[in-house]
């Protein structure tokens, strides 16, 4: 499944450069603490795990909790080591994982 995600990563970089990567995914991040109009609790539905891999190796991961806002936005930096694929994976409470990718050319 392709995520509705917005990725901002440089397309090219010099070897050894520190690059910033930003990823945002569309998700309502329902906390599980809110009531619907009928007084019933709205069940929790959040993304609880984010993992980023670069050339197959994990470079960043995060656990997310109900206090995180809707459409979570995550930014971090890494060192450009080699040309390859940066993969982003968000796993939700329903166990589904959504992924997105970005290519980077390092010279």
């Amino acid at each position: 499944m392709t995520a509705r995600a917005l990725i901002n990563a440089p397309k090219t970089a010099r070897k050894g450069d520190i690059i910033e990567i930003r990823a945002m995914i569309a998700h309502k991040m329902e906390t599980g603490y809110r009531q619907g109009p009928n007084g019933q609790m709205i069940p929790r539905d959040i993304i609880n795990r984010f993992v980023c891999t670069y050339g197959g190796a994990e470079i960043f991961s995060a656990d997310l909790f109900p206090a995180v806002s809707a459409n979570p936005f995550i930014a971090f930096s890494t060192v450009a080591t080699e040309s390859g694929t940066i993969t982003f994976a968000w796993t939700g409470d329903d166990g589904q994982t959504q992924t997105a990718t970005a290519e980077i050319a390092v010279n």
Partner: peptide, 13 residues
């Protein structure tokens, strides 16, 4: 200002 950090862009998409 940045379209990759503006959550309104999901609505645009």
């Amino acid at each position: 200002a940045d379209d990759t950090s503006n959550p309104g862009m999901f609505s645009v998409l």
